[in-house]
């Protein structure tokens, strides 16, 4: 597990992180969400021991990164945002190079890692690299480069996986493949992924932290976050009748905060958004009133505030 306490980082005058604290449990996939420049990559660089924080502590499985860099690094698999590869090497040479270092370091302390040849075969299969292992990396497409770099990060079967924007530049099929890999790994390991793609968070993460301008602005499960921002429930309802009549019907209901015309399907079918005061469920009342006034309801649903909406509200 990773536990981070009161982490701050300054680059000269720029304060990249301000008093960030959170933890990632074993067997958990944490999504690290935020707009560009929010401090996601900086946090990851600190956890992986690439840069030092200005203040605060980062513990990986109980060990402070600064005091035990080698012990920490051998437990971590890291996919940097820049996808660093060596263009003049083949995929196999590259994985052998990284693998020989990572596996050796890990096997000295942990018997859970396979020998190099088996590890190579495993990641080549897992990341779908079988067709390109003997090709120079410089010739590969963005998708294969990304997967080669992911293979490098998981070759030693690490306890902790840090992935900085793992699906950027991939096509939709590749994205879903990479997400499958992440989900597979996330079952037993501690995984932290950064992204600004919201579907990704919903697809693979157990928990989300939203960070903006170096501060944590929200955290929780995706469902919790959606609920958090539901200040007032709104209901979308589509009815047949005269526009003014429907409007009045809805306004006459008790505890109504706002009624807004949303769309017009045809001359006598109108959609309205009804907001109640508080978190009252007003669907049944709308139904009964509509029945009593003989105004047919064609469609009705509770409007969910999407994660996207939450994200936009929090990082504005």
């Amino acid at each position: 597990m990773i536990s981070i306490e009161h982490l701050s980082k300054k680059y000269g005058l720029l304060q990249a992180l301000k008093d960030v604290s959170f933890s990632v449990q074993d067997g958990e996939v944490l999504g690290f969400l935020g707009p560009n420049g929010a401090g996601k990559s900086t946090t990851m660089k600190i956890i992986t021991g690439y840069t030092a924080p200005t203040e605060g502590s980062v513990k990986v499985n109980g060990l402070e990164v600064w005091e035990h860099p080698l012990e920490v690094k051998r437990q971590i698999g890291y996919l940097p945002e820049s996808v660093p590869l060596y263009d003049d090497m083949t995929v196999l040479e590259y994985l052998q190079f990284i693998g020989s270092i990572r596996i050796k370091a890990r096997s000295a302390f942990n018997s859970g890692s396979l020998p190099l040849a088996e590890s190579l075969a495993r990641v080549v299969k897992l990341c779908g690299l079988a067709n390109v292992v003997r090709r120079p990396i410089g010739e590969l497409s963005k998708g294969y480069r990304q997967r080669t770099c992911l293979a490098q990060a998981i070759i030693h079967n690490p306890d902790i996986l840090i992935l900085d924007e793992p699906t950027s530049g991939l096509d939709p099929n590749q994205i879903s493949e990479v997400r499958d890999v992440i989900r597979e790994i996330g079952r037993e390991k501690t995984v932290m992924i950064s992204t600004h793609i919201l579907q990704e968070v919903q697809a693979v993460c157990d928990r989300v932290i939203i960070i903006n301008e170096g501060r944590i602005v929200a955290h929780g499960t995706t469902a919790e976050l959606e609920r958090q921002s539901e200040s007032a429930q709104s209901v979308y309802v589509k009815m047949r009748g005269l526009k003014e009549k429907i409007h009045q019907l809805l306004l006459d209901l008790p505890d109504i905060h706002e009624v807004r015309h949303r769309d017009t399907e045809s001359a006598d079918i109108f959609g309205f958004e009804v907001t109640a005061t508080g978190s009252l469920d007003i669907r049944e009342r709308i139904f009964r009133r509509a029945v009593s006034l003989d105004t047919p309801i064609l469609e009705m649903r509770v409007e969910r505030v999407s994660l996207e909406e939450v994200f936009r509200q929090l990082t504005k």
Binding site: Y78, V83, P84, Y86, I101, R106
Partner: peptide, 17 residues
Amino acid sequence: DEKKGGGMELLLTLPIR
């Protein structure tokens, strides 16, 4: 070269001194 291509970040986060 490592600095430019980002290789530095990977190289120095490997478990090596």
